[in-house]
Design a protein around this nucleic acid. Structure first.
Lengths: 161, 161
DNA sequence: GTTGAAAATGGAAAAAAATGGATTATTTTG
DNA sequence: CAAAATAATCCATTTTTTTCCATTTTCAAC
């Protein structure tokens, strides 16, 4: 059985809360007992990861920063991850509250329709319009890649110099 | 559970005091029992670190300075950290007072709105407008990185030389 | 040293916001 | 078409935030 796959649409209520569908709840219950991390992605959406998943991501990132470390870079990395991540718990009735700053970041208006997108390791909450654009970006990128693949198949392989 | 993560907005009162939200208070209580160090960052904000965290940062910085030591560099490092750091204690009702000189440094007007930003090892107090600019800097840097990643994905892999 | 003014501090009350639950409406399924 | 399940709205309660006030402390002048 696939976990964290599929997509939903639902309304964010007047207080910035989202009710997750039953299958998401099951996935989160299995993965982390409801302890999740909200994280704002550069793409302009809010990701919901099981705590352990986020911890692993963050660990890798930290290694990278240390390699490149100057104090400005290090502070900015911590600032971004600190400011744009938060622990939360799914409530007994399957709701999570998106903090006001995160709502603003991801253009999630209370009362508006949002997309809940499974991303295999968690879910993402998208502004509906932004999500449409994102999917078009992915699609056209793939098509372009396909074209290049076909071209490469025509061109005989040779040593690069 | 993540510590020192998330962000808040609140008003600095007429006497230059800030009320920290409950989750920050819990984090500080766990880390240092309320004994904190205020420190002005080059970015133009005031950081609040648990005493031990600041001590460790300072120790590392000093080692670095000594390795490169000329007396000018060493004196200036000590001058900067001496002048721009101060011990304080969170009051029983969860408030801290920002000293006037630090307020001026970070453009924190009494009566104005400030941002409280989690940075994983402590929090930072920002002038709201400055924070917006800082986050835009970080965001556009990341977006540029993303674009380059996507371009690289299109270009067929080849040996680097 | 004493008195007065100003500022800082601590606390409490009022206002606002967030939370949890329950009811109502809608959709889905048999 | 009916029943069940799901989703959305509403409301009461609790918590948090903000404002205000009283007390203490500090500094300065007499």
């Amino acid at each position: 059985m696939l976990t964290f796959c599929g997509q939903d649409r639902c309304l964010m209520d007047g207080n910035g809360r989202i009710k997750l569908g039953q299958h998401w709840l099951d996935d989160f219950a299995a993965a982390c007992d409801g302890e999740i991390v909200l994280h704002c992605l550069p793409e302009g959406a809010v990701a919901l990861y099981p705590e352990a998943v986020y911890g692993e991501m963050r660990r890798r990132e930290l290694e990278e920063v240390e390699r490149a470390a100057s104090s400005f870079v290090a502070r900015r990395s911590m600032r971004r991850f600190g400011a744009l991540a938060a622990s939360e718990r799914i409530t007994r009735q399957g709701r999570i509250t998106i903090p006001p700053a995160f709502r603003e970041y991801a253009a999630l208006e209370p009362g508006s329709e949002v997309c809940i997108i499974g991303v295999e390791i968690g879910v993402e909450i998208w502004n509906a319009e932004r999500y449409r654009t994102e999917m078009m970006t992915i699609q056209s990128h793939l098509l372009r890649k396909g074209e290049e693949e076909m071209t490469a198949d025509l061109t005989p392989e040779r040593e690069e110099r």
